[in-house]
Nucleic acid binder design. Sequence first.
RNA 1: GGCCUGGUAGCCAAGUGGCUAAGGCGAGAGUCUGCAAAACUCUUAUCGUGGGUUCGAUUCCCACCCAGGCCU
Length: 315
Amino acid sequence: MEIKPVQKLSKLVVVLGPTASGKTDFSIELAKKFNGEIISADSRQIYKKMNIGTAKVRGAWQKDKVTGEKVFVYENIPHHLVDFIDPGDEFSLAQFKALAIARVNEIISHGKLPMLVGGTGLYIQAVVDNLLIPAVPPNKKLRQSLEEKTNQELVELLKKLDPVATRTIDADNKRRLIRALEVCIWTGKTFSGQQNKGESLFECLQIGLSVPRDELNSRIAERAEKMMERGLLEEVRALVKQRYGWNLPSMSGTGYKQFAGYFKKEISLENTVELLKRDTRRYARRQMTWFKRDAKIKWVDNVADAAKLIMEFLN
RNA sequence: GGCCUGGUAGCCAAGUGGCUAAGGCGAGAGUCUGCAAAACUCUUAUCGUGGGUUCGAUUCCCACCCAGGCCU
Protein backbone atom coordinates (compact mmCIF):
# COMPACT_ATOMS: atom_id res chain seq x y z
CA MET A 1 0.00 0.00 0.00
CA GLU A 2 1.33 3.30 -1.02
CA ILE A 3 1.45 5.99 1.55
CA LYS A 4 1.05 9.45 0.21
CA PRO A 5 3.28 12.00 1.81
CA VAL A 6 1.10 14.26 3.86
CA GLN A 7 1.63 17.62 2.41
CA LYS A 8 0.85 20.51 4.62
CA LEU A 9 -1.63 22.73 2.95
CA SER A 10 -1.39 26.47 3.11
CA LYS A 11 -3.90 28.16 5.31
CA LEU A 12 -6.66 30.35 4.02
CA VAL A 13 -9.08 32.32 6.14
CA VAL A 14 -12.51 32.91 4.66
CA VAL A 15 -14.88 35.55 5.93
CA LEU A 16 -18.38 35.35 4.57
CA GLY A 17 -21.84 36.58 5.37
CA PRO A 18 -24.91 38.15 3.81
CA THR A 19 -24.82 41.54 2.20
CA ALA A 20 -24.78 44.47 4.62
CA SER A 21 -23.69 42.27 7.49
CA GLY A 22 -20.60 44.39 8.00
CA LYS A 23 -18.05 42.07 6.44
CA THR A 24 -15.91 44.93 5.20
CA ASP A 25 -15.08 46.55 8.51
CA PHE A 26 -14.98 43.18 10.16
CA SER A 27 -12.46 41.76 7.75
CA ILE A 28 -10.30 44.86 7.80
CA GLU A 29 -9.97 44.66 11.55
CA LEU A 30 -8.98 41.04 11.28
CA ALA A 31 -6.57 41.73 8.45
CA LYS A 32 -4.84 44.35 10.58
CA LYS A 33 -4.60 41.97 13.48
CA PHE A 34 -3.19 39.10 11.50
CA ASN A 35 -1.14 40.85 8.86
CA GLY A 36 -3.57 39.82 6.20
CA GLU A 37 -4.45 40.75 2.67
CA ILE A 38 -7.96 40.55 1.39
CA ILE A 39 -9.14 38.76 -1.69
CA SER A 40 -12.66 39.79 -2.48
CA ALA A 41 -15.13 37.05 -3.32
CA ASP A 42 -17.76 39.37 -4.61
CA SER A 43 -19.11 39.07 -8.11
CA ARG A 44 -20.01 42.77 -8.35
CA GLN A 45 -17.14 44.57 -6.72
CA ILE A 46 -14.94 43.28 -9.51
CA TYR A 47 -16.29 46.01 -11.76
CA LYS A 48 -14.73 49.37 -12.28
CA LYS A 49 -16.99 52.41 -12.24
CA MET A 50 -19.38 50.62 -9.92
CA ASN A 51 -18.44 51.78 -6.47
CA ILE A 52 -21.41 53.02 -4.54
CA GLY A 53 -23.97 50.44 -5.59
CA THR A 54 -21.66 47.55 -4.88
CA ALA A 55 -20.60 48.98 -1.52
CA LYS A 56 -17.02 48.63 -2.66
CA VAL A 57 -14.36 49.65 -0.21
CA ARG A 58 -13.33 53.21 -0.85
CA GLY A 59 -9.77 52.41 -1.60
CA ALA A 60 -7.39 53.48 -4.32
CA TRP A 61 -4.90 51.93 -6.67
CA GLN A 62 -1.33 52.22 -5.43
CA LYS A 63 2.01 50.90 -6.50
CA ASP A 64 3.29 48.27 -4.16
CA LYS A 65 6.68 49.33 -2.77
CA VAL A 66 8.09 45.84 -2.96
CA THR A 67 6.70 44.29 -6.11
CA GLY A 68 5.99 47.47 -8.01
CA GLU A 69 2.62 46.11 -8.98
CA LYS A 70 -0.56 48.08 -8.69
CA VAL A 71 -2.75 47.12 -5.78
CA PHE A 72 -6.12 48.36 -4.62
CA VAL A 73 -5.56 49.54 -1.07
CA TYR A 74 -7.98 50.57 1.63
CA GLU A 75 -7.03 51.29 5.21
CA ASN A 76 -3.56 50.07 4.37
CA ILE A 77 -4.90 46.66 3.51
CA PRO A 78 -4.47 45.40 -0.05
CA HIS A 79 -7.77 44.28 -1.60
CA HIS A 80 -7.44 41.92 -4.51
CA LEU A 81 -9.93 41.11 -7.24
CA VAL A 82 -11.70 44.39 -6.79
CA ASP A 83 -12.22 47.13 -9.35
CA PHE A 84 -10.49 45.49 -12.28
CA ILE A 85 -13.13 44.55 -14.86
CA ASP A 86 -14.92 46.91 -17.19
CA PRO A 87 -18.69 46.78 -16.66
CA GLY A 88 -19.08 45.88 -20.32
CA ASP A 89 -16.88 42.81 -20.05
CA GLU A 90 -17.88 39.37 -19.00
CA PHE A 91 -16.45 37.55 -16.09
CA SER A 92 -16.97 34.03 -14.93
CA LEU A 93 -16.66 31.64 -12.07
CA ALA A 94 -13.78 29.82 -13.70
CA GLN A 95 -11.84 33.03 -14.12
CA PHE A 96 -12.52 33.97 -10.56
CA LYS A 97 -11.31 30.67 -9.26
CA ALA A 98 -8.07 30.81 -11.17
CA LEU A 99 -7.33 34.39 -10.16
CA ALA A 100 -8.24 33.85 -6.54
CA ILE A 101 -5.99 30.82 -6.21
CA ALA A 102 -3.12 32.70 -7.79
CA ARG A 103 -3.59 35.58 -5.36
CA VAL A 104 -3.74 33.30 -2.35
CA ASN A 105 -0.44 31.76 -3.31
CA GLU A 106 1.16 35.12 -3.93
CA ILE A 107 0.06 36.44 -0.59
CA ILE A 108 1.38 33.39 1.16
CA SER A 109 4.70 33.74 -0.62
CA HIS A 110 4.96 37.27 0.76
CA GLY A 111 4.53 35.86 4.21
CA LYS A 112 1.11 37.31 4.77
CA LEU A 113 -2.22 35.79 5.63
CA PRO A 114 -4.67 35.44 2.74
CA MET A 115 -8.25 36.23 3.59
CA LEU A 116 -11.02 35.46 1.15
CA VAL A 117 -13.84 37.84 1.97
CA GLY A 118 -17.22 38.11 0.35
CA GLY A 119 -20.77 37.06 -0.06
CA THR A 120 -20.76 35.25 -3.36
CA GLY A 121 -21.23 31.72 -2.12
CA LEU A 122 -20.39 30.00 -5.34
CA TYR A 123 -17.14 31.88 -5.75
CA ILE A 124 -16.09 30.96 -2.25
CA GLN A 125 -17.05 27.36 -2.72
CA ALA A 126 -15.11 27.12 -5.94
CA VAL A 127 -11.93 27.93 -4.05
CA VAL A 128 -12.63 26.23 -0.74
CA ASP A 129 -13.94 22.98 -2.21
CA ASN A 130 -11.81 23.16 -5.32
CA LEU A 131 -14.71 22.79 -7.69
CA LEU A 132 -13.51 21.36 -10.97
CA ILE A 133 -15.36 23.50 -13.42
CA PRO A 134 -15.94 21.97 -16.86
CA ALA A 135 -13.45 23.65 -19.16
CA VAL A 136 -16.08 24.80 -21.58
CA PRO A 137 -16.06 28.50 -22.20
CA PRO A 138 -19.30 30.23 -23.09
CA ASN A 139 -20.20 29.65 -26.71
CA LYS A 140 -22.19 32.62 -27.86
CA LYS A 141 -23.46 31.16 -31.10
CA LEU A 142 -24.58 27.96 -29.48
CA ARG A 143 -26.22 29.85 -26.66
CA GLN A 144 -28.08 32.05 -29.07
CA SER A 145 -29.44 29.15 -31.03
CA LEU A 146 -30.49 27.36 -27.87
CA GLU A 147 -32.05 30.53 -26.59
CA GLU A 148 -34.60 30.35 -29.39
CA LYS A 149 -35.90 27.01 -28.26
CA THR A 150 -38.57 26.63 -25.64
CA ASN A 151 -37.72 25.38 -22.19
CA GLN A 152 -39.56 22.19 -22.98
CA GLU A 153 -37.46 21.54 -26.03
CA LEU A 154 -34.33 22.18 -24.04
CA VAL A 155 -35.39 19.75 -21.35
CA GLU A 156 -36.11 17.10 -23.97
CA LEU A 157 -32.69 17.61 -25.45
CA LEU A 158 -31.00 17.46 -22.07
CA LYS A 159 -32.89 14.30 -21.22
CA LYS A 160 -31.19 12.65 -24.15
CA LEU A 161 -27.73 13.98 -23.44
CA ASP A 162 -27.71 13.98 -19.66
CA PRO A 163 -30.78 12.64 -17.90
CA VAL A 164 -29.16 13.02 -14.50
CA ALA A 165 -28.79 16.75 -14.95
CA THR A 166 -32.49 17.00 -15.64
CA ARG A 167 -33.12 16.10 -12.04
CA THR A 168 -31.19 18.96 -10.53
CA ILE A 169 -31.88 21.68 -13.04
CA ASP A 170 -35.27 23.30 -12.91
CA ALA A 171 -37.20 22.80 -16.10
CA ASP A 172 -37.98 26.50 -16.19
CA ASN A 173 -34.46 27.68 -15.66
CA LYS A 174 -33.38 28.40 -19.20
CA ARG A 175 -29.99 29.75 -18.29
CA ARG A 176 -29.00 26.59 -16.48
CA LEU A 177 -30.47 24.33 -19.13
CA ILE A 178 -28.45 26.07 -21.79
CA ARG A 179 -25.24 25.86 -19.85
CA ALA A 180 -25.70 22.16 -19.21
CA LEU A 181 -26.37 21.55 -22.89
CA GLU A 182 -23.40 23.65 -23.85
CA VAL A 183 -21.11 21.46 -21.79
CA CYS A 184 -22.66 18.24 -23.05
CA ILE A 185 -22.45 19.26 -26.68
CA TRP A 186 -18.94 20.64 -26.46
CA THR A 187 -17.38 17.77 -24.53
CA GLY A 188 -19.54 14.91 -25.71
CA LYS A 189 -19.90 13.88 -22.08
CA THR A 190 -22.56 14.54 -19.51
CA PHE A 191 -22.61 17.80 -17.65
CA SER A 192 -23.54 16.15 -14.38
CA GLY A 193 -20.58 13.81 -14.67
CA GLN A 194 -18.21 16.73 -14.86
CA GLN A 195 -19.28 18.48 -11.70
CA ASN A 196 -16.53 17.24 -9.48
CA LYS A 197 -14.43 18.43 -6.64
CA GLY A 198 -10.68 18.18 -6.59
CA GLU A 199 -8.47 17.62 -3.60
CA SER A 200 -8.37 20.53 -1.22
CA LEU A 201 -6.01 23.26 -2.26
CA PHE A 202 -5.87 25.00 1.07
CA GLU A 203 -6.65 24.38 4.66
CA CYS A 204 -9.58 26.68 5.15
CA LEU A 205 -11.21 28.31 8.11
CA GLN A 206 -14.61 29.65 7.15
CA ILE A 207 -15.97 32.32 9.43
CA GLY A 208 -19.53 33.45 8.94
CA LEU A 209 -20.61 36.83 10.19
CA SER A 210 -24.07 36.35 11.56
CA VAL A 211 -26.55 39.16 12.00
CA PRO A 212 -30.16 38.66 13.13
CA ARG A 213 -32.55 39.04 10.22
CA ASP A 214 -34.35 42.05 11.70
CA GLU A 215 -31.13 43.89 12.25
CA LEU A 216 -29.88 42.96 8.83
CA ASN A 217 -33.03 44.35 7.26
CA SER A 218 -32.68 47.67 8.98
CA ARG A 219 -29.03 47.83 8.02
CA ILE A 220 -30.01 47.18 4.43
CA ALA A 221 -32.50 50.03 4.52
CA GLU A 222 -29.97 52.38 6.04
CA ARG A 223 -27.34 51.38 3.58
CA ALA A 224 -29.64 52.05 0.64
CA GLU A 225 -30.31 55.56 1.92
CA LYS A 226 -26.61 56.15 2.39
CA MET A 227 -25.90 54.96 -1.12
CA MET A 228 -28.33 57.53 -2.42
CA GLU A 229 -26.69 60.25 -0.35
CA ARG A 230 -23.32 59.28 -1.74
CA GLY A 231 -24.59 59.72 -5.26
CA LEU A 232 -25.71 56.33 -6.47
CA LEU A 233 -28.08 57.96 -8.92
CA GLU A 234 -25.21 59.86 -10.54
CA GLU A 235 -23.09 56.75 -10.65
CA VAL A 236 -25.80 54.87 -12.48
CA ARG A 237 -26.49 57.81 -14.77
CA ALA A 238 -22.84 57.89 -15.76
CA LEU A 239 -22.95 54.20 -16.62
CA VAL A 240 -26.09 54.67 -18.67
CA LYS A 241 -24.45 57.55 -20.51
CA GLN A 242 -21.54 55.30 -21.32
CA ARG A 243 -23.98 52.95 -22.97
CA TYR A 244 -23.76 50.08 -20.57
CA GLY A 245 -26.93 48.12 -21.20
CA TRP A 246 -29.32 46.97 -18.54
CA ASN A 247 -28.93 43.33 -19.42
CA LEU A 248 -25.20 43.20 -18.86
CA PRO A 249 -24.27 41.06 -15.87
CA SER A 250 -22.79 44.13 -14.24
CA MET A 251 -25.91 46.21 -14.74
CA SER A 252 -28.33 43.48 -13.77
CA GLY A 253 -27.09 43.29 -10.24
CA THR A 254 -28.79 44.76 -7.22
CA GLY A 255 -27.98 48.42 -6.88
CA TYR A 256 -28.17 49.04 -10.60
CA LYS A 257 -30.98 47.13 -12.24
CA GLN A 258 -33.50 48.79 -9.97
CA PHE A 259 -32.78 52.05 -11.76
CA ALA A 260 -33.78 50.77 -15.17
CA GLY A 261 -37.40 51.69 -14.54
CA TYR A 262 -36.45 55.10 -13.28
CA PHE A 263 -34.38 55.96 -16.34
CA LYS A 264 -37.17 54.75 -18.58
CA LYS A 265 -39.39 57.12 -16.63
CA GLU A 266 -41.62 54.32 -15.45
CA ILE A 267 -41.19 54.65 -11.72
CA SER A 268 -40.27 57.34 -9.25
CA LEU A 269 -36.95 57.63 -7.53
CA GLU A 270 -38.63 56.89 -4.24
CA ASN A 271 -40.00 53.62 -5.56
CA THR A 272 -36.64 52.80 -7.03
CA VAL A 273 -35.06 53.02 -3.61
CA GLU A 274 -37.80 50.84 -2.17
CA LEU A 275 -37.12 48.27 -4.86
CA LEU A 276 -33.45 48.41 -4.04
CA LYS A 277 -34.16 47.69 -0.41
CA ARG A 278 -36.55 44.89 -1.24
CA ASP A 279 -34.21 43.19 -3.66
CA THR A 280 -31.29 43.52 -1.29
CA ARG A 281 -33.34 41.85 1.45
CA ARG A 282 -34.20 39.03 -0.88
CA TYR A 283 -30.62 38.67 -1.91
CA ALA A 284 -29.50 38.44 1.69
CA ARG A 285 -32.03 35.68 2.25
CA ARG A 286 -30.76 33.72 -0.73
CA GLN A 287 -27.23 34.09 0.52
CA MET A 288 -28.20 32.64 3.86
CA THR A 289 -29.87 29.72 2.14
CA TRP A 290 -26.63 29.06 0.37
CA PHE A 291 -24.45 29.35 3.44
CA LYS A 292 -26.69 27.14 5.53
CA ARG A 293 -25.68 24.15 3.47
CA ASP A 294 -22.09 24.35 4.51
CA ALA A 295 -21.68 22.92 7.98
CA LYS A 296 -18.01 23.85 8.02
CA ILE A 297 -18.82 27.51 8.47
CA LYS A 298 -18.24 28.78 11.97
CA TRP A 299 -20.66 31.56 12.78
CA VAL A 300 -19.69 34.47 14.99
CA ASP A 301 -21.11 37.90 15.70
CA ASN A 302 -18.07 39.82 16.85
CA VAL A 303 -14.45 40.38 15.92
CA ALA A 304 -13.05 38.99 19.15
CA ASP A 305 -14.60 35.58 18.58
CA ALA A 306 -13.41 35.56 15.02
CA ALA A 307 -9.91 36.49 16.13
CA LYS A 308 -9.93 33.61 18.57
CA LEU A 309 -10.88 31.20 15.84
CA ILE A 310 -8.13 32.47 13.59
CA MET A 311 -5.59 32.25 16.38
CA GLU A 312 -6.42 28.61 16.99
CA PHE A 313 -6.46 27.95 13.28
CA LEU A 314 -2.99 29.36 12.73
CA ASN A 315 -1.37 27.46 15.57
C1' G B 1 -80.90 58.01 15.22
C1' G B 2 -81.12 57.78 9.52
C1' C B 3 -78.65 56.97 4.80
C1' C B 4 -74.41 55.24 1.89
C1' U B 5 -70.02 52.35 0.95
C1' G B 6 -67.08 48.54 2.37
C1' G B 7 -65.55 44.01 5.44
C1' U B 8 -61.52 38.27 0.89
C1' A B 9 -54.25 35.50 3.86
C1' G B 10 -49.66 39.43 8.30
C1' C B 11 -50.64 43.84 4.60
C1' C B 12 -52.60 45.70 -0.29
C1' A B 13 -56.01 43.84 -3.62
C1' A B 14 -59.06 41.11 -7.96
C1' G B 15 -63.08 38.03 -8.57
C1' U B 16 -67.32 34.47 -9.47
C1' G B 17 -74.18 31.17 -8.06
C1' G B 18 -70.73 25.39 -8.88
C1' C B 19 -63.58 22.73 -11.90
C1' U B 20 -58.22 22.97 -6.86
C1' A B 21 -60.75 31.80 -4.68
C1' A B 22 -56.19 36.14 -9.53
C1' G B 23 -52.06 39.04 -8.51
C1' G B 24 -48.59 42.06 -5.63
C1' C B 25 -46.02 42.95 -0.95
C1' G B 26 -44.38 40.60 3.39
C1' A B 27 -42.86 35.90 5.48
C1' G B 28 -40.85 30.95 5.14
C1' A B 29 -38.44 26.84 2.59
C1' G B 30 -35.34 25.33 -1.48
C1' U B 31 -32.16 24.64 -6.19
C1' C B 32 -27.32 26.01 -7.48
C1' U B 33 -19.99 23.98 -10.96
C1' G B 34 -17.77 29.47 -16.88
C1' C B 35 -23.93 35.43 -16.28
C1' A B 36 -24.47 33.57 -9.22
C1' A B 37 -26.04 40.85 -6.09
C1' A B 38 -27.76 36.29 -11.55
C1' A B 39 -31.31 32.55 -13.01
C1' C B 40 -35.08 29.46 -11.09
C1' U B 41 -38.71 26.32 -7.80
C1' C B 42 -42.13 25.57 -3.78
C1' U B 43 -45.28 27.02 0.63
C1' U B 44 -48.55 30.79 2.94
C1' A B 45 -57.25 32.30 2.77
C1' U B 46 -62.63 27.54 3.21
C1' C B 47 -63.94 35.09 1.41
C1' G B 48 -66.75 39.69 9.16
C1' U B 49 -70.78 36.72 12.42
C1' G B 50 -75.54 34.17 12.54
C1' G B 51 -79.60 32.74 9.77
C1' G B 52 -82.28 32.04 5.03
C1' U B 53 -83.06 31.11 -0.46
C1' U B 54 -80.85 27.22 -3.58
C1' C B 55 -79.13 20.74 -5.71
C1' G B 56 -75.03 24.19 -4.48
C1' A B 57 -73.13 30.59 -1.87
C1' U B 58 -67.53 33.84 -0.82
C1' U B 59 -70.95 35.65 -4.62
C1' C B 60 -78.40 36.54 -3.73
C1' C B 61 -81.78 37.93 0.72
C1' C B 62 -82.37 39.20 6.18
C1' A B 63 -80.38 40.36 10.91
C1' C B 64 -76.23 41.57 13.71
C1' C B 65 -71.12 43.28 14.52
C1' C B 66 -67.05 46.35 12.74
C1' A B 67 -64.73 50.40 9.74
C1' G B 68 -65.09 54.76 6.87
C1' G B 69 -68.16 58.59 4.86
C1' C B 70 -72.53 61.52 4.75
C1' C B 71 -77.09 63.45 7.01
C1' U B 72 -80.10 65.14 11.25
